[in-house]
Design a binder for these strands. Structure first.
Length: 272
DNA sequence: TGATATGTTATCTT
DNA sequence: CAAGATAACATATC
């Protein structure tokens, strides 16, 4: 399940491979990809960046591809040589195929999505703006200040803290995995109400959100279930403290509950 | 076979 | 109105 670090990793890898390249043909094979895209070729990939868990491709014709991988969206990239000779990789690209982007140099980018929850939309600048303003602050940018975080928590003081952390309108980029990690590291019970957090707890939480995300990006994200970035897999799952674990780092048994319809593990001893 | 996992949003309930 | 619960989407994997 790609969350912020995984999407960031994918964006960086795609940048290395296809930034500035020209797409000469787009084949849309599934309605989760906007068919209008196929009518806009040729176009050049002017920029690629991330906002929350979305990937944004800026084209040289004033339009944008707005991509959300949701749970099982994948990109595969093949050079023109691989297209010609690497049958195995080519085969991989054809499973759950939703769209093919053919480059001028013979390279190929595919979008694949097993469960088809993800999507690729075509936006103009205004539509993109509307979409982006819905999202909360980026945790790794200066807009995520301690002061702003504190104020927002106060504003939502009756909400369960874990639910809030996963709410993309409240804060962009955290999902079920990293929300649990951050709460464990900050020693906060995920069921607490936002308004019950002390100044010190808020400070710790704020710091851990930034630190964990940065560390996970260094490890190229966590590989759980279906997540795979373009060049293979990240290894942060080996450093996760609560997600998918039985015991916490201190050897206590973890509690498993459901919060906001999602499985949640936490430690009764370490998280108060 | 059936439970489970997941992100997001819409809709219903409290 | 706010917050929580639930369903919906799809399907591989255990």
């Amino acid at each position: 399940m790609p969350e912020l670090p995984e999407v960031e990793t994918i964006v960086e890898q795609l940048k290395n491979k296809i930034l500035g390249k020209v797409v000469i043909k787009v084949e849309v094979l599934d309605s989760i990809v906007d068919n209008e895209i196929s009518k806009k070729t040729p176009f050049k990939l002017k920029n690629i960046y991330r906002r929350a868990k979305a990937l944004i491709f800026e084209l040289d014709n004033g339009l944008y591809l707005f991509v959300h991988l949701r749970m099982t969206g994948h990109f595969h990239y093949l050079t023109n040589e691989q297209v010609a000779f690497d049958k195995e990789k080519l085969e991989k690209c054809h499973r759950f195929l939703a769209a093919k982007f053919n480059f001028e140099d013979g390279g190929l980018l595919t979008y694949n999505d097993i469960r088809r929850f993800g999507f690729v939309k075509l936006f103009n600048k205004e539509q993109l703006g509307v979409e982006l303003t819905k999202l909360g602050p980026e945790p790794l940018s200066s807009e995520f200040s301690l002061r702003c975080f504190t104020a927002k928590l106060k504003d939502k003081k009756n909400s369960v803290i874990k639910t809030l952390l996963m709410d993309q309108h409240f804060l962009a980029g955290l999902g079920n995995i990293y929300a649990q990690e951050v709460l464990y590291l900050a020693g906060i019970n995920p069921l607490r109400k936002a308004g019950s957090l002390t100044t010190l707890e808020i400070k710790n939480l704020h710091r851990h959100i930034i630190e964990v995300l940065k560390l996970a990006i260094k490890h190229k994200g966590s590989t759980v279930d279906n997540y795979a970035h373009v060049d293979g897999s990240g290894d942060f799952q080996n450093y996760l403290v609560v997600y998918g674990r039985e015991k916490c780092t201190k050897g206590h048994n973890l509690q498993k509950v459901e919060i906001g319809g999602r499985g949640t593990s936490y430690c009764l001893e370490c998280q108060k």
